[in-house]
Write a protein that binds this DNA or RNA. Structure first.
Lengths: 330, 330
DNA sequence: TAGCAGTTCCGAAACGTTTCGGAAAAAACA
DNA sequence: TGTTTTTTCCGAAACGTTTCGGAACTGCTA
């Protein structure tokens, strides 16, 4: 492997000087800098990032840690979108992104990163009441939660106002005269599930209705589970006239179930989703949903993380807006 | 940071011995091994993987390099599936996976990895006629292509027989009496596009029909493009009675376009897709498609790569089977 | 001419591991 | 007892970089 030493030799310079030249440091004359760059390129030198990060005790890598892809949630296009956003910011600002898809919860998120010379991380889909997560929350390791509130030293998060938008969506259903609106919930361990559930209940109470556990199913953010839960609910309460589904994917399951039971949509039953997947334009009835910008979410997460890592004090919680898409399924 | 040195000090041993103990090497007595492990855990030692990989000149990381997520292909659930498969193998065999989503083609894929101390990579979605890719192909750096043929020293690939299955699908359309079958192609730079196109043409010729450029649209693997291309084709040739779409996602676009034109499906027009997304169960008419197992694809890619990296001679091209799903849309 | 500042350079240590060659200690044998 | 083998240990170098403190030049001023 061609190292700094080889370049130095070829230039008749010291390793120190070559390093400084290549890194744009000050103590080097223009002439030598150019010569070093030329020679380095010529003999095919590539910097060893491993050594660099060992020596400098830090890397330019932003870690994204994503959990829970094993079987549970099938559509994960928003994960990709968030990564795209993260990547966009990272590239513009001289960082690079490494994505770690993990299954087991690490003993410690912090040492997981430290082991790898990564100075900060973004967390996705982690279960907010697991042991390691709580420890992380109490540490001072730079970390940004996506779709999950985080606070504390060197912590930040990018979220949307789930409760609020859910309430707004529910109000639309109620405004259209829906009297018995069921809920298809997501993974009970997820932050967003809890928030959206409270938004659902809030809207009902505001309209003078009492939330009824008989009208709530758990779809685990999976299309198929949403389908079967919808069938179950409709069997128990055939007069349900509206569904709020915590994800578009689950809404597709609900629609499929209702179709198979012969309900006319949206005349007999209204459906509302959450996410704003591009796909929802193409299902019938065209889905009413709450559009989130996942790319922007990722972008802001990366921005926030780098600010935290550089110690810049700033807003630590970014709340992004969503759009209410009122369409055929309403 | 707590290092080997600290553990050694706490144990009254040398750094060497502690390293050996922690790595399960031979030259260490059971008693000391246990003591070292206990002390290490107690004082909170975590191994520094950066230093390890610098010293040992190799890491246990498998890199996955994924390109072209910027805007082009919107649904990428199969990317996630492949990663899940890769992860599964990696975890079982003591490797870990790092995913690099890149946009710019690196100057050299090989040095991109070497810089990061990664000994081998899996390539996804790369454009097979770009400059750097050709150089890589000629190098001896361990690499496995997913959905793209690769050969040469320390190269391998995991593919499916795209041409074959496309022909089989086409035969089904022809068998059902379809006379004018259009093609919605993917990204022209993609390996699979070329293969599937040749399968399409092959089937037509076998049935005594001549492939007609007037019946071919380019959907770029994007739903929206497939939709508009379908509209264009139907306008030019309203008597098209079948579509072979190179991805399920594009098939959804085609179906949507045909619906909006008022065609009765599948009575007037048959549609065939490719991929076998779970979602295709829920669109109407239920899509006929070629089901690929992306998880298995990833799993085999990782297996192949590790074999190559360890220098085990073995089959270097894995061809996975698909399933023909003949359903309503036919 | 010496004194001084500014620029450009370099040696050596450090980052935390692994590993080679050999040394010390323990065990086995004569 | 001394000799050999086996087991257990250690010092030191190496991986490729960064960085600190100081050294060697250059050109300028007094």
């Amino acid at each position: 492997m061609i190292g700094l030493k080889d370049v130095a030799q070829a230039c008749g310079l010291s390793v120190t000087q070559v390093s400084r030249a290549l890194n744009g440091k000050s103590d080097v004359s223009l002439a030598t800098r150019e010569r070093v760059e030329r020679v380095a390129a010529q003999i095919g030198y590539v910097k060893n990032l491993t050594a660099q990060s060992l020596s400098s005790k830090q890397s330019n890598q932003l870690a994204v840690i994503i959990r829970g892809l094993d079987g549970k949630r099938e559509s994960t296009s928003f994960v990709i979108d968030a990564i795209r956003g993260i990547n966009a910011f990272a590239r513009q600002n001289g960082y690079e992104t490494v994505v770690h898809f993990i299954e087991e919860i690490p003993e410690s998120y912090e040492s997981y990163c430290r082991q790898r010379g990564v100075g900060g991380m973004m967390l996705f889909n982690v279960n907010f009441n697991d042991e390691s997560f709580i420890r992380l929350q109490e540490s001072s390791f730079p970390c940004v939660g996506i779709d999950m509130a985080m606070s504390g030293e060197n912590k930040g998060c990018v979220i949307v106002n789930n409760a609020n938008y859910t309430t707004l969506a529910m109000q639309q259903l109620i405004k259209r005269g829906r009297k018995k609106i069921a809920l298809i919930a997501g993974d009970p361990g997820a932050f967003v599930t809890i928030e959206r559930q409270s938004g659902y209940e809030m809207a009902l109470r505001q309209a003078g209705m009492e939330p009824d556990p008989k009208l709530m199913g758990c779809g685990e953010f999976r299309l198929e589970d949403a389908r079967s839960e919808t069938l179950r609910l409709m069997k128990e309460s055939p007069d349900i006239d509206g569904f709020f589904c915590m994800s578009d994917l689950m809404a597709i399951g609900t629609i499929d179930a209702l179709n198979s039971l012969g309900y006319k949509l949206p005349e007999q039953v209204s459906i509302f989703g959450f996410d704003g997947l591009p796909l929802t334009d193409y299902i019938h009835p065209v889905l009413s949903t709450i559009k989130q910008d996942h790319i922007k979410k990722g972008y802001h997460a990366a921005r926030l993380l780098t600010q935290i890592m550089r110690g810049e004090q700033d807003e630590r919680t970014v709340v992004l807006p969503c759009e209410l898409w009122l369409r055929e399924s309403l």
